[in-house]
Nucleic acid binder design. Structure first.
Lengths: 339, 339
DNA sequence: ATGAAAGCGCTAACAA
DNA sequence: TTGTTAGCGCTTTCAT
């Protein structure tokens, strides 16, 4: 690898002068600069980042540790958002996937520290609480899509309650009164929070929510769940007094509701309105009609995680805001107005 | 940050002794080791990777540059595969997303070089040719899901021709004779190669492929394409002599064929068998019935890219194998045997 | 078995 | 405007 010294020798100037030029120091004679630039080009000099760091220059690398987020279709947008925010300053992401293995995570914290990364984003696949612990790491840590159990770390989570509210509010505003609900498994935060939002929307609209229409679209423990949306939807739609709309805990659940509706010769949205959650494009844009849903703001979470990480550098120890990122409604063709 | 010197001072030994212990050098007195270990733990010493690299120790970081692959649901598995292969040796991935911007890529090559990464995988979202050029980078570069135009770089691509063959062969073996084809846009390699494979399967089976049943399921230029699979399928299935099976260029195309079939009250697989490509789980596992498809071996490509990168270190300049990774058939419920 | 000293490539402080 | 020198934290060489 070409070093400053070699360039200096070839250019007949001192190391420091070359260093100045490489770093854009204006205090260099224009002629000197030009002649050195040529050699820099020819030798294709690229500064050694490791050597720079030894002089106390901060790393330009940030860490992203995840349980699986970087590698699932559902939430890669967190990575995209973070990278977009980083790119502007020519900084990059070192990505580590623990697959949820705690021991592996300890190992990764060490690695991040060895690399002297500038900060770390810990992102999870789904909205949950996470205990980072004291990972032998003093730099800024920001949680994305999860929050610290002891609320001792800044974090960024989707506003699931607001999202649930948006789902129900949209249908209520369009005249629906009998609305079914097909949730995810109850133990996860998203299910609970959205449920609160949905019920609040009903209350605000002065409509009573029929709890008998609240069914699970998915069962099982977290991970290893299985989808029962199809059967649940079938049952719900075969009632004599069937709902005019169904709110789903996930676009994939909605996917199955479409199938159940098709099976019963019910057309969407004429006979049945369907509302999804997540805005998983592969599903929402390919369904017929395309699915009206509430988007999980993953990209935004990633983008703001970087900002938060930068801010946190200038903050004192206890600083740990928990930021709710809004989940916007995305109107497509699966919900109709009831006259 | 704690340095060797501090640990040494506290332990009352020399820097070198601590260094030996940190690096597992056996030539250290057991008692000394134990006492120093305690201080290492207490101070939570983590070696400075930058300083190590200055002494010529190789980086433990590899680079992954992509046009978009790390951030699309379709091909993140390349990243997962690469990480799985790397994890065993405690190495990690620095990920850079260029979004296809050539200028951005030049910048990233510089960055990889500045970080002195050990090797770089260049991965693309879809199977295509890519000219890496001479990116001011002498270390190993491996192409994943794309191949060098001048074939001057080792590369790993899916065996699309074999995949096409598998699609057709499966249906032919199950008695189908009248088979429709809904392709992606013609200009991409995948379409061409799979077409060859499909026709070869027909020839091997002694069946004539009816070219009038070959339609595009997607139109437009690469990127910004739009899906016309629904209309194409509708038209194909409304013919008096409609096909008994349809081969799709992508699972999303198959998605629309299901919708078209439902619209025509054709049931899958009784009235129509459907064959996908890619094995995009979100689609294949949620469709009713679940979709029989041919999988794109992204995980395997990522895994082997790392191996190839390691091998390439010991190879001479011209070494540039182009490896075809098989696309296995995944049988589910959308294809039936014709009696 | 342990240590002293040199030096990796760079930048900051200071000098010329 | 330019150059000299020191030293970041580590590993390597060569003593002891």
């Amino acid at each position: 690898m070409v070093t400053l010294r070699e360039v200096a020798k070839l250019s007949g100037v001192s190391i420091k002068t070359v260093s100045r030029i490489v770093n854009g120091d204006p205090a260099v004679n224009a002629k000197t600069r030009d002649s050195v630039q040529v050699h820099l080009q020819n030798l294709n000099y690229v500064p050694n980042q490791a050597a720079r760091m030894m002089r106390g220059v901060q790393s330009s690398v940030y860490g992203l540790m995840t349980d699986a987020v970087a590698t699932t279709p559902y939430s890669v947008d967190i990575v995209r958002g973070a990278q977009a925010a980083l790119k502007e300053q020519n900084q990059t992401l070192l990505i580590a996937n623990s697959n949820g293995d705690a021991e592996q995570e300890v190992e990764f914290w060490r690695m991040f520290r060895a690399q002297r990364v500038r900060g770390v984003i810990y992102a999870s696949v789904f909205h949950r609480s996470h205990n980072v612990g004291r990972p032998a790491f003093n730099d800024s840590i920001v949680l994305a899509n999860c929050y610290a159990s002891g609320s001792d770390r800044p974090s960024l989570v989707p506003d699931d309650e607001g999202g649930g509210y948006a789902q129900a509010e949209h249908l209520l505003r369009n005249g629906h009164r009998r609305i079914g609900l097909l949730t995810l498994i109850p133990k996860i935060d998203a299910t609970r929070l959205r449920g609160i939002g949905i019920r609040r929307a009903f209350k605000d609209a002065g409509v009573t929510f029929d709890e008998s229409l609240n069914q699970q679209g998915m069962i099982g423990p977290v991970h290893g769940e299985s989808m029962v949306a199809y059967e649940a939807a079938l049952k719900m739609l075969q009632q004599k007094n069937r709902p005019t709309a169904i709110i789903c805990g996930h676009d994939a659940v909605a996917f199955h509701v479409y199938a159940a509706a098709a099976h019963l010769r019910l057309s969407v949205p004429q006979d049945l309105s369907i509302m999804g959650f997540d805005d998983l494009k592969v599903i929402t844009e390919n369904l017929h009609p395309r699915l009206t849903t509430v988007a999980l703001p993953y990209f935004e979470i990633g983008r703001r995680a970087v900002e938060l990480m930068r801010e946190s550098t200038h903050q004192k120890e206890g600083w740990a805001p928990k930021i709710l990122v809004p989940c916007p409604l995305v109107e497509r063709g699966s919900c109709r107005t009831l006259s």
